[in-house]
């Protein structure tokens, strides 16, 4: 039973047809990588899964996206509830101008949790899960901006984990980081797979190959090929995929 299921998704920015008939099934507790050249629609598709594109004016979507069997674009769905189920980590680290502790606690507070012990416990747990606890446990009250870029990104992951989502969407989470921080994030993705379903957009072929179970190749708004990562990287069925992976275009 798939946790995310999309059926014939079309998406438009004004007149621009950004996604063309995308259908995809994503299994729970897997890592799915979206690859493809810039502007191919992979980030747009990712942002449809927590309705982040609602914020952009003059956009239109047709088709269905089901998460745990529910159409998330149904009128009865509350967007803020959906987003607590589908967490997101962004391309650039974007901590709030608050303390490290408050950054992680924010998601709990806005969702109405007031129990201090519960919050403190969850903050610690989330920071541990994001492999950041040991580095920040003595400076939880310090501003999040004092952390390095890689630490900030792990803080953002901890922040997303704190509200216990089922799915974690990651939009090029390591593209702004140095190799060492990148490898830390990749290790993290590997462990998080046990508890979460992860969808990651990446420009980095090796990264997709290293962390994902399944890979989807997008090109010009279409889903060209979607298969096991090994299959995609070793024996792609379609020539365009082959060309992209081997770096002949893109």
């Amino acid at each position: 039973m798939s946790i995310i299921s999309t059926k014939n998704v079309d998406f438009y920015y004004g007149d621009f047809h950004a996604l063309k008939g995308i259908s995809m099934e994503i299994e729970p507790n897997t890592v799915t990588a979206f690859i493809g050249p810039s502007g191919c629609g992979k980030s747009t598709f990712l942002r449809l899964m927590n309705r982040m594109n609602d914020l952009i004016d003059h956009t239109r979507m047709t088709g269905e996206i089901l998460i745990e069997g529910q159409n998330i674009y149904d009128k009865t769905v509350r967007v803020d509830e959906l987003r607590t189920k589908v967490g997101m980590v962004f391309q650039k680290p974007n901590p709030f101008p608050k303390s490290i502790y408050e950054n992680v606690a924010y998601g709990l507070r806005v969702n109405g949790i007031k129990d201090k012990d519960l919050i403190t416990h969850t903050v610690e747990e989330s920071l541990r899960n994001a492999a950041l606890w040991n580095e920040v446990k003595d400076k939880l009250k310090k501003s999040a901006f004092e952390l390095s870029g890689g630490q900030q990104q792990r803080l953002c992951i901890a922040r997303a984990l704190a509200i216990k989502p089922r799915i974690l969407l990651m939009d090029e989470p390591a593209s702004a980081l140095d190799p060492l921080s990148t490898s830390k994030i990749e290790d993290l993705i590997f462990t998080l797979k046990n508890d979460y379903t992860i969808v990651i957009v990446t420009h980095n072929m090796q990264q997709a190959a290293r962390v994902s179970d399944k890979t989807a190749f997008f090109y010009l708004g279409e889903l060209v090929e979607f298969d096991d990562t090994q299959q995609i990287f070793l024996k792609p069925k379609i020539e365009a995929t082959q060309n992209y992976i081997t770096g002949r275009f893109g």
Binding site: D80, R83, N94, F96, K98, G107
Partner: peptide, 27 residues
């Protein structure tokens, strides 16, 4: 206030008002 900061708040299930008063104004 960067779009990414606003989106981070909304992505955590915060409402628009919560985002304005707890993230945008402090920023």
């Amino acid at each position: 206030v960067p779009r990414a900061t606003k989106e981070a708040s909304l992505a955590l299930g915060a409402s628009q008002m919560q985002t304005i008063f707890k993230v945008i104004l402090p920023y």
